[in-house]
């Protein structure tokens, strides 16, 4: 039967010298126009996100097939791990767990004290976010985008906008959710900004991703009190990232005499390339409409936040209680 189909499709045995159909130019124009329309529909109006989700969902079996060889290699490697390596690791982990337990004992008393003090001051209680453990399935198919794909999706209750952290610090934010996986944009991406605080002096600012594994803190005056090596932690005023998570360390400060602002470069602390496990923090109870990860208004709010920065001691409380 197949043979009959071929004969119908290939009238000549010669390689298509005469069978050409519509001219390549007209085809090119048609398909280019189609792709330009699609790009506009995708970028401007986000019409195609449901199409994408359905496709990724349908592609899941194929993805599993593609993942199978590397999973297999990983599992066999795990099986043949040497005995003494495991013993050593076990010893180290026990030591770590002991240290952490001692620290946790202090933490619980301090937390109780903090809650008590806050209730004395009539302040709001801090939010305790729940978290879902996920694993990085691959670091994005496009090597030039700052994205990792995690093996938890909408079927596990993941929502776009969730903050993602690892044991060292903040990794980024969930930007797209598919049925069995979700896409996490790293903090270094150009489209992402994160409200931060300098650990040393509690100065609040907003850090913007720059690509090339760096973050930039714009709109800070040239004489700002920031030094190389300062740790940046989340300030928690956005309601997405809980306060106090490590984000980055300042690596370079450039003062340009022509500009009133300092150029402050920092590198993120999270080790996306080294670990597989990460935590997806649940969003706090806020109205859905208030959370939009890719908002161009972020820059405006950043500018405003910096304007307010000198008066930070006064309005700090109001921000924290929001």
């Amino acid at each position: 039967m197949l043979k009959g189909v071929h004969q119908k499709l290939e009238p000549q045995q010669s390689p298509a010298f005469f069978v050409r159909g519509a001219s390549p130019f007209s085809r090119m124009m048609l398909y280019s126009a189609l792709s330009i329309v699609m790009m506009a529909a995708d970028a401007r109006w986000n019409y195609l996100s449901t199409v994408r989700q359905a496709f990724i969902g349908a592609l899941h079996p194929l993805e599993m097939l593609a993942n199978a060889p590397s999973n297999w290699v990983r599992d066999t490697k795990k099986y043949f791990t040497a005995h003494n390596q495991l013993v050593q690791e076990n010893y180290l982990l026990k030591q770590q767990a002991f240290e952490h337990q001692v620290m946790l004992q202090r933490l619980s008393t301090i937390q109780a004290e903090n809650i008590h003090l806050r209730s004395l001051l009539n302040g709001n209680l801090p939010i305790q976010p729940k978290a879902i453990l996920g694993e990085i399935s691959h670091t994005g198919r496009d090597p030039f985008s700052n994205v990792v794909v995690v093996n938890r999706g909408s079927s596990h209750g993941i929502k776009p906008g969730q903050a993602v952290v690892d044991s060292k610090g903040v990794i980024g934010q969930v930007t797209r959710v598919f049925p069995y996986s979700s896409e996490v944009t790293l903090v270094i991406d150009k489209q992402l900004s994160i409200p931060i605080q300098i650990e040393r002096n509690q100065l609040r600012a907003i850090a913007f991703g720059e690509g090339n594994n760096t973050l930039d803190i714009p709109y800070l005056p040239a004489n700002v009190d920031i030094r190389v090596g300062d740790k940046l932690v989340t300030s928690g005023i956005d309601g997405i990232y809980p306060a106090g998570l490590a984000v980055a360390t300042v690596t370079k400060i450039q003062q340009n005499p022509e500009s009133p602002f300092a150029k402050i470069i920092s590198t993120p602390v999270a080790e996306v390339t080294n670990h597989l496990q990460l935590l997806l923090l649940e969003l706090p109870e806020v109205k859905e409409s208030e959370i939009k990860p890719h908002e161009p208004e972020a820059k405006e709010t950043a500018a405003k936040a910096v304007e307010k920065a000198p008066a930070k001691q006064k309005d700090k409380k109001t921000h924290a209680s929001r």
């Binding site: 792709s35 330009i36 790009m39 529909a41 995708d42 994005g140 198919r141 496009d142 985008s145």
Partner: peptide, 15 residues
Amino acid sequence: LATGSLLGQHALSFT
């Protein structure tokens, strides 16, 4: 669709 880039990007360049 597979790489998650802007829909139509590869399509236009391939075309």
